[in-house]
Design a protein around this nucleic acid. Structure first.
Lengths: 189, 189, 189, 189
DNA sequence: CATGAATGAGATTTCATTCAT
DNA sequence: CATGAATGAAATCTCATTCAT
């Protein structure tokens, strides 16, 4: 793994552990096993790592959707597949979604944020488009907006499960179940 | 206004203006019109103000719901009233929700987080209960879970509007419209 | 107990517990059960309490000698009685002797220090004088200097026992025994 | 001289000049010619320098004894040589002994204190052993205890001379003279 | 490229002292 | 006399950043 990659992974670990505010560059370089000065060869500040982390997360999310969602399956099944993808990514990055979001908002890089999420929104939009075409999803809201609502709802729900230490498998199943009904109803014709 | 209250209000102002990361305690005390040392009589650090801010926000949110939502109105109308309340609070606190959230997750105060939101969840739960009783809302998901899903969805959607500098009234109306349909469908029988 | 007395006693307790450097006036007033401002009605600073503490200690020391030392007893017995007095006071004030000393040296009040110890030195000098007259103590060193050497040696030895947490009765007895022989030899004709 | 050494030496200078209480870390770093932050790379607080200072003092004391004391000289001469060594070190470190002591007792480093003095005690113990073997020193007290009594007495006596501003050479000679007789008698067979 | 000791600006934090009650 | 909340000067301490190696 090259140094830049090490820094990103270390940042994810430390941000998750300590939160953005309390994370110092010294923590990151220690976790990454590199020298203090090396950090600056790749990033100008800790917040500048945020977009890279977000990119990584979105990339994995899109991949997870590609792997799981079958476009010819019934809508309910597709919704469940989307949920599985969201929970998988959320488990991996835990509350970094929100932290990333907060970090970005802090750093005057909001436009980047839209860019980074764009590919995820488009991916979900495609799925929605398809289901609108075949009459599974209602057509009184435009597909991009529906995509953002869908992604946001899944993200937020998954976080509610993984944020807390007393994570329990049963709770995860229940939450997925509730989310599935909620989303399916919200989208269907 | 007592000193503690002054600090909380000043923190809200400064956090909104500068973000958590850039905010210095010196900014807060200046805004609050108190001495540097006085801050520490009430809070041990700037992050420790977060729960107090969140409490204030939730309090206002609950009040906004009380003022707006009519329990005997049709479900769609109630949903719209809930949305109005959420947008009103979000407008007031802007991205402080997410900042607060980030701040709380940082600290070891996650249980506080649940506590603080509890009164809001309960308020919405009551509304849902009522609508489940009269058959307006589906009963295949328990009301507390539905309340959390509803609150989360509204919060997230409102933030998507107010987070960005290029806020536009038209966009707000469109987003509310989309959210209304989304939530109404998600909840209704 | 009047407030001044409370402050002195509280200072002794806190200085013993925390050392001079780490002791804050807030610690003292808390221990004394009085208000912050009240301290300043009696003392201008924490170091200004030192002479009062030293006085108290010296006073008790002199009393202890008066009670114990029998001028008509054999020299060895008188030495043992002096040692008992020194250990008694040292037990009570523990390492405050040295701390007082350090505190005084810090506070440009060295002349006071001599004054305060003077009555103790005089008391011991009298005893030495008497024993020089009757030929028990050697006369090739003047009695005041012998008194200071005697007091200093006892003080230091007692502290070596009480300073450490792992205080043991056996160690106290052994140290007294060794000190007795040491002092007796040092003084006798 | 490396930075750590610079800090220790500067601390000695400033502590002697100002006392522990009044010494600020800014004084030390200025005297040491280093940056404020550099101090914290080596010591967590000014009190944490104390053990290092004590070590240095003990080291010099042991060296002074090695240079001066002749094991084959008569006991009285060896006592005088020990006294010379003690006064030399005390002159150099002045009231730092007592300040160091106060500083150490403050911190929770009392065991360190014993450790640091151990090498000095051992050095003097060797001398006493030798003189017990050849019958010059009485054998009814064990040599380590005698060593501690001897060291303590010398230290305390030397301090009494150098602590006061109105230091006078004549007084130093007189005190040495009195101490010589005192110690010689206390130890001899 | 990589290092990590050193820096010092600027933040946090303390705490003696005041003073209105 | 007594109080203790408030003060703010002055201390401690942090940590992003640099740069000689």
């Amino acid at each position: 793994m090259d140094k830049r990659e090490k820094i990103i992974q270390a940042s994810i670990d430390v941000f998750k552990e300590q939160g953005i505010e309390k994370t110092k560059i010294s923590n990151i370089v220690k976790q990454a096993g590199i020298a203090q000065g090396t950090f600056y060869l790749y990033f100008p500040s800790k917040l500048a790592v945020m977009p890279a982390i977000a990119e990584k997360m979105i990339e994995q999310w899109v991949e997870a959707i590609d792997e799981r969602v079958k476009l010819n399956a019934p809508l309910l099944e597709q919704v469940n597949q989307l949920i599985e993808a969201a929970f998988q990514v959320s488990k991996e990055f835990r509350d970094l979604t929100v932290l990333t979001y907060a970090g970005l908002s802090t750093s005057d890089q909001l436009d980047q944020w839209e860019n980074i999420y764009a590919s995820l929104y488009q991916k979900v939009e495609e799925i929605i488009d398809q289901n609108q075409s075949n009459g599974s999803i209602r057509q009184n809201t435009d597909s991009y907006r529906l995509a953002k609502l869908t992604v946001g709802t899944m993200e937020m729900t998954a976080e509610q499960v993984f944020l807390y230490d007393e994570y329990q498998e049963q709770e995860e199943r229940d939450q997925k179940e509730a989310l599935s009904k909620f989303l399916y109803q919200a989208l269907k014709k």
